[in-house]
C-alpha cells in the first residue's frame, strides 16, 4: 500500500520537517488566489472595468459630439471620465476581498488553513499582502490603459488631457491605490463577520448607502461629516475634480489607510481570539 512509509524509518521526519514561515504562507496564499475560478473572473472584471469603462464613455461622448451643448463640451473632464471605471473596479475588488476569507469560512477551508499555520496571523498577513500586491499591479496597469485609451478617443475633438496635465498621474495612482486599500479593508471585514452576505452588505452600506443618509442631514452637519466618509475620501484621491469640502488627495488617502488599518487590527484580534 504505502511504499513511502514502508521504506521509511518509523516516525522519522517529525522534528526534522520544514517550519512554517511567512514567505511560505504567502506562497500558499498565492496558489489559493489563482486556483479559484471565481477569483480569476473577479480580477478580470475589475481589470476590464478600470481599463475599459473610461474609453467606452469617451467613445460615446465623441459620437454624440454634435448633440452636446457648448456648456457640456466645455465641462468635459477628460481625466475623470477616462478613469471613471474605478467605481465598478472597487466594487469587484471589495466583493473579492470579502470572499477571499469568507469563502474559507463557508467551505470549512479556514480550519485547514489554521491547522497548517496555527499562529493564525500569518494567514491574514499573507492574504492581505498577496491580494494587495495583485490588485495594485492590475489596477495601475488598468488605470493607465483607461487613461491613455480615453485620451486617444477624446483627441478627436481636442478635449483630451495628457499624463503631464495637472492631477492626471495623481488620479491614476490614486484610483489604483484606493481600490487596493478597499480590497484590503474588505478582507478584514470578511475576517470580522465571517459571512459573505454580511461582509458585502457591510461594504455596500458604508460605501454606498451611508453617503445617501448623510446627504439628508442639515447641510452644515452633512458638510462636516461628508469628507470623512470612505466614498468622499475615494473621490478626493481618485478624481481630478474634487468637492469644496474634500480633503487634499493624499491626506484623504492617508485617512482611508487609517480606517483600513483599524479594521485590520480588529480582524486580527478576533482571528486570534475566536474559535475557528
Amino acid at each position: 500500500m504505502s511504499t513511502t512509509s514502508a521504506t521509511r524509518a518509523p516516525v522519522a521526519s517529525g522534528a526534522a520537517g520544514q517550519r512554517v514561515t511567512l514567505p511560505r504562507v504567502i506562497r500558499s496564499e498565492w496558489t489559493k488566489l489563482w486556483t479559484l475560478r471565481s477569483t480569476r473572473w473577479s480580477l478580470l472584471l475589475a481589470f476590464a472595468a478600470q481599463a475599459g469603462l473610461g474609453p467606452l464613455i469617451a467613445a460615446i461622448e465623441m459620437a454624440r459630439w454634435s448633440h452636446l451643448s457648448l456648456f457640456e463640451r466645455l465641462t468635459i473632464n477628460p481625466i475623470d471620465r477616462s478613469l471613471g471605471g474605478w467605481h465598478l473596479a472597487q466594487l469587484a475588488m471589495a466583493i473579492l476581498g470579502v470572499m477571499t476569507i469568507t469563502g474559507e469560512y463557508h467551505t470549512g477551508m479556514i480550519r485547514s488553513s489554521l491547522m497548517a499555520a496555527p499562529k493564525r496571523l500569518p494567514v491574514l498577513w499573507a492574504k492581505l499582502l498577496v491580494f494587495s500586491a495583485v490588485t495594485l499591479v492590475l489596477m495601475v496597469i488598468a488605470a493607465f490603459i483607461g487613461f491613455l485609451g480615453g485620451q486617444a478617443i477624446f483627441a478627436e475633438h481636442h478635449v483630451n488631457a495628457s499624463l503631464s496635465s495637472a492631477h492626471a498621474l495623481r488620479a491614476i495612482f490614486g484610483a489604483a491605490l484606493f481600490t487596493t486599500a478597499t480590497g484590503a479593508l474588505c478582507i478584514a471585514l470578511g475576517t470580522i463577520v465571517r459571512r459573505t452576505a454580511g461582509g458585502i452588505s457591510l461594504f455596500v452600506g458604508v460605501f454606498f448607502v451611508l453617503p445617501g443618509l448623510v446627504a439628508i442631514l442639515p447641510s452644515a452637519t452633512a458638510n462636516a461629516i461628508n469628507p470623512y466618509l470612505p466614498s468622499s475620501l475615494g473621490q478626493a484621491v481618485a478624481q481630478a475634480l474634487t468637492g469644496p469640502h474634500d480633503f487634499a488627495p493624499w491626506a484623504a488617502f492617508a485617512i482611508f489607510c487609517g480606517y483600513t488599518a483599524a479594521v485590520i487590527a480588529i480582524g486580527a484580534v478576533l482571528l486570534l481570539r475566536r474559535d475557528a
Binding site: 517550519r19 512554517v20 469563502g103
Partner: peptide
C-alpha cells in the same frame, strides 16, 4: 513550528474549498 510534520488531522466537517 511545523504542525503538518507533527500532526496530521482529518476533521469530521469538511475543511476544503
Amino acid at each position: 513550528v511545523a504542525p503538518l510534520h507533527e500532526v496530521g488531522a482529518l476533521l469530521e466537517a469538511r475543511a476544503v474549498h
